[in-house]
Design a protein around this nucleic acid. Structure first.
Lengths: 145, 145
DNA sequence: TTACATGTAACCATTATAGTTACAGGTTAG
DNA sequence: CTAACCTGTAACTATAATGGTTACATGTAA
């Protein structure tokens, strides 16, 4: 299957908080932009908060960035929203036959390859920040002000 | 979610076909090594066949490698078994609000980043072959012969 | 105290996975 | 030719994650 859209929604939220930083971004406002339910936004915002990427407080309207967006990598968001659970991007079949030379060795041999591939993905995500996304958006459509 | 174990099973099958190349590998034999149902093996073997990685024929017992294993990349297997459907590793939320500057631009901006990350993963998989896996297995446990 | 926001729990429909059974159809040995 | 055996595939199941929805407890401040 593919990686949860929580990831892209998380990026959306952070980009929105930057671009609309002068406004009060309630879960309802954000939900309008993302086009989903406010509760979904609160769930994801909660995860971003746990990761120290945003500040939100019960009873107080609006989420705010906790860091400069150039210091929030896509990997931070990826991990924050559990885009992939347990950081296990690949699944290895669980119980190959230990009585077979291939069966009893395949898991660790495959794991080596999977780990390398996963690391390649994560390195790429680590080299990119919310700033890159925001710049791209503003480049397409400069804000009037 | 994570990537289907069809991928690791596909690798398992190909490695097994190499290491047991003198034997007749029926779906039942392979299923013993993988520890699953023969029908599952036949399904995956069918996908590998479609991709030109193995030869199998109805009524004839045994699957055989269609290529040298040094010419089968992990990316070939990944694609063959539809480890990720439609080659869309990441999901982008579908209908952001077009009436919002962020909403109407987020998809393409995020897509740029996701494409780069996906490509990094695929490049890594392309640089690794079934040979690497087989060598690793034989390295751990040399075959008696 | 009233109005409104966040945090969460409970629940649902949808979808992919992995496994299972069953059987149609191809192949070969006797 | 038929019996035995194999592959290909359809149909069905249980399990699990996703994304959405409603409802409500809790916190804040005018």
């Amino acid at each position: 299957m593919s990686i949860s859209s929580r990831f892209s929604v998380g990026i959306h939220i952070l980009a929105l908080l930057e671009i609309d930083k002068t406004e009060v971004n309630t879960s309802e406002n954000i939900a309008m932009s993302v086009n989903t339910n406010p509760a979904v936004i609160r769930k994801i915002t909660g995860m971003l908060k746990k990761a120290g990427l945003v500040n939100v407080q019960p009873g107080i309207a609006g989420a705010k960035l906790a860091k400069d967006i150039s210091e929030i990598t896509l990997l931070d968001v990826y991990r924050a929203v559990n885009a992939v659970q347990e950081d296990e991007l690949f699944t290895v079949h669980a119980k190959p036959n230990p009585d077979c030379p291939v069966g009893r060795n395949i898991q660790s041999s495959v794991e080596i390859q999977f780990t390398a591939a996963q690391r390649a993905l994560e390195n790429e995500l680590e080299n990119r920040t919310i700033r890159d996304v925001v710049d791209d958006i503003l480049n397409k459509e400069p804000l009037e002000s």
